[in-house]
């Protein structure tokens, strides 16, 4: 995997939504229910980052820009970061870490449980994201990092269950995910070897 001099751009790129959200929050632009809106925005960008991460390998192949592959890690880690902030904002701003609120949400609300599982699935990926880990784990690393697929899937289900109805956004996430999975099935061998 060659690192090009421009690949660092992925890091600030992933930070852009956060900067935008922070500006909106600081400017009081998040409406009358700002904490809820913040939680929703962070969750939405978590999914976008996860999908961006999955898009990088096909994009590198299709655009013939091999350097893009390194952005899988960039966006993968950003995805993990956004999910962590999503969780922290939810638990802190909306629930105030109130044990009875938290207990109820974590045991009674399927969409919360599913979201938590998605988050848990991302932990080992984030923790083994370094080059050393990759070298050390070898082929096991590749297998382990397939956890991203259940994580995204759970994330999309979580997103679709939060809302009252209206499946526009969910449809976008699902379509992108399906295209990526299809590409992977068609070019799968290629992707693992490379």
């Amino acid at each position: 995997m060659k690192s090009k001099h421009w690949t660092w751009v992925g890091w600030p790129l992933g930070a852009l939504p956060l900067a935008w959200i922070t500006m909106q929050a600081a400017g009081g632009q998040l409406g009358p229910d700002p904490a809820e809106t913040l939680v929703e925005l962070l969750g939405w960008w978590s999914l976008v980052m996860l999908l961006a991460c999955l898009t990088m390998r096909p994009a590198a192949q299709l655009l013939k820009v091999p350097g893009l592959v390194i952005w899988r890690r960039t966006f993968g880690l950003w995805a993990f970061g956004y999910v962590c902030m999503h969780f922290l904002a939810w638990a802190t701003l909306l629930l105030g870490w109130d044990p009875s609120f938290l207990g109820e949400e974590l045991t009674k609300r399927p969409y919360i449980i599913i979201g938590m599982l998605a988050w848990l699935a991302l932990w080992p990926l984030a923790l083994t994201s370094t080059r050393q880990s990759r070298r050390r784990l070898g082929r096991k690393w590749v297998k382990l990092h397939r956890l991203i697929f259940p994580a995204v899937l759970l994330g999309v289900v979580h997103q679709s269950w939060v809302q009252k109805s209206g499946y526009g956004e969910t449809l976008i996430f699902v379509s992108v995910l399906l295209i990526l999975l299809l590409y992977r099935i068609l070019h799968g061998r290629n992707m693992i070897r490379k």
Binding site: A25, P32, D33, P34, A35, E36, L93, K108, Y111, W161
Partner: peptide, 21 residues
Amino acid sequence: VDHPRWSQSRERRLPNSFFDP
């Protein structure tokens, strides 16, 4: 009677703030 997916036992009275839902 909870919504099947979320609790109806409490509500956020709007507008609220980051520091108090």
